[in-house]
Each structure stands twice: as structure tokens, then as C-alpha cells.
């Protein structure tokens, strides 16, 4: 038997053991009245199966992961369609406008101004057909033009000027060095060196190269901080899943 075939056999055995374990444990949970055979009980079992199936990818790609992956993609897509209908199209377009056009006895008056965004929305779909794709540019023009007009002044206000203000503080007060002075200096050096790293009009040689290297150091330290926080974030997600498995499903933790 080749090592590859051997591995495959081991994987198949592991898969069968895993499925048998899932079946056995769920039969035990239902028969022992730990879980009730209702929507909540079945829901917990389905969630537990999908959680474990997803984590099985850590071992290697396998049929259980494939099943979970396809269910996930399908549910994501289906839920998106349903929510778009229930939360967007129905309350914001169908009820105030389209319903009036279909049914005669609809109470209230139609909101005709909605015809404009409706047409612009339909134009977005025109992109899917080559000959009419130019129509979508009108919708994009509206989005980009409106977005830029509204966004640029407030972004300059909030993200440039407001951020510049604390960076322009005096480094020393009465020529006395304090922790605050060191903080201000660090922020100043960090901001300038990172800005110079992202300066594309000059080659990174000589002084510019040196300053941009300092910029890289600042960037790497900030990435380290982000990485640390991310470990916490990812572990929080897995802790919540384990809590669910041990508490709601297996009832090991009360």
C-alpha cells in the first residue's frame, strides 16, 4: 500500500469514527433528555455539527468541511436575498410605490419621488448586459459625485485637521522635558517618517531612505499591536464556540 493510499484509509476511518461519535452523542443527548426534540434542540445539534465540520478543516480538507462550506455559502446567499427583500425592497420601494401601481385599493398616496432611485437602481443591473452597461455609469456618477461632495469636506475636517491639531502641540512647556514631550515627539517622528515612506515621488535613497526606514519600524510596531489584538479577537471567537459546545450542546459546563 502506498503512503498516499494509507493516509486515505486513515482519513476515511477517522471520518467514520467522527460521524459515529456525532451520531452516538446526539442519540445519548436526546434519549437522556439533555436536549429536547424541538426546534431549539435540533437547532443546537445542527449548529454543533456545522461548528465541528468547519473546525475539521484544521486537520485537512474533507467531505464534512465541504458540506459545511456549501451550506454556509448557500445560507449566506439565501439570507442576503431574503433580507434584501424584507428590509430594503419591500418597505422602501414596494410598499410606498409599487403596491399602488399593482393594487387599486391600496391606502395612502404613492411616493412618486422613489421612481428616481428605482430607475438608478435598475441601471446598476444594466452592467450585467454588455450593450446597456453604459447606463450604469449614471448610477455610479450619482454615487461617486454625491459621495465625494458629502465626504471630502467632512473627511478633511475630521481626519486631517482634527488629527493635525494635537500633533502641533508645543513639545516643551517652559523648556521642561516631560513624558508628554516624549509622547508628542514620538507621534511627530512616527507621523512624518511613515508619510515619507508613502512618498512615491522620490527614490528611497540617502536621507529619504533613512527616514523611510524609521517609518517602516513605526509601521511594524503598529502591526505588532494589531497582531496582538487579533490573537485576542480570534481566541474570543473560538472560546464562544467552545462555550456553546460544552454548555448548550454537551451540558458539561452548567
Amino acid at each position: 500500500m502506498t503512503p498516499e493510499k494509507n493516509n486515505k484509509t486513515i482519513d476515511t476511518i477517522l471520518l467514520i469514527i467522527f460521524v459515529a461519535f456525532l451520531l452516538g452523542i446526539n442519540i445519548f443527548l436526546f434519549s437522556g433528555k439533555y436536549l429536547h426534540f424541538d426546534t431549539q434542540g435540533v437547532g443546537i445539534v445542527v449548529a454543533a455539527f456545522l461548528t465541528l465540520a468547519m473546525y475539521s478543516f484544521l486537520y485537512k480538507d474533507n467531505p464534512l468541511f465541504k458540506i459545511a462550506e456549501h451550506i454556509f455559502v448557500g445560507i449566506g446567499m439565501g439570507m442576503g436575498v431574503v433580507l434584501t427583500w424584507l428590509q430594503v425592497i419591500k418597505p422602501l420601494l414596494y410598499k410606498p410605490l409599487i403596491r399602488h401601481a399593482i393594487f387599486d385599493n391600496t391606502p395612502g398616496t404613492p411616493d412618486y419621488i422613489l421612481i428616481v432611485p428605482m430607475i438608478l437602481g435598475i441601471f446598476m443591473f444594466a452592467r450585467l448586459y454588455g450593450k446597456t452597461s453604459w447606463l450604469s455609469r449614471w448610477s455610479f456618477a450619482f454615487i461617486v459625485g454625491g459621495g465625494a461632495g458629502i465626504g471630502i469636506p467632512v473627511i478633511i475636517n475630521s481626519l486631517i485637521l482634527k488629527q493635525l491639531e494635537p500633533s502641533l502641540q508645543p513639545i516643551f512647556v517652559d523648556w521642561v522635558v516631560t513624558w508628554q514631550s516624549i509622547n508628542i515627539l514620538l507621534i511627530l517622528v512616527g507621523t512624518i517618517s511613515v508619510l515619507i515612506y508613502f512618498f512615491f515621488s522620490l527614490p528611497h535613497k540617502g536621507t529619504i531612505g533613512g527616514i523611510s526606514r524609521i517609518g517602516i519600524w513605526f509601521l511594524m510596531i503598529s502591526f505588532g499591536a494589531t497582531f496582538g489584538y487579533t490573537v485576542m479577537g480570534r481566541m474570543s471567537l473560538i472560546i464562544q464556540r467552545i462555550q456553546f459546545l460544552l454548555t448548550d450542546w454537551l451540558h458539561i459546563i452548567k
Binding site: K162, Q163, I187, Y229, M232, G233
Partner: peptide
């Protein structure tokens, strides 16, 4: 915010936004 976004928010605390 989620932990991953937290470091990005510190500049807004410096400006008291």
C-alpha cells in the same frame, strides 16, 4: 469594537473624537 480594529481607534481618542 472587535479587538482587531481597536488599535486603529486610538488616534481618535488622542483628538477626543
Amino acid at each position: 469594537c472587535t479587538a482587531i480594529s481597536a488599535p486603529d481607534m486610538y488616534p481618535f481618542m488622542q483628538t477626543k473624537q
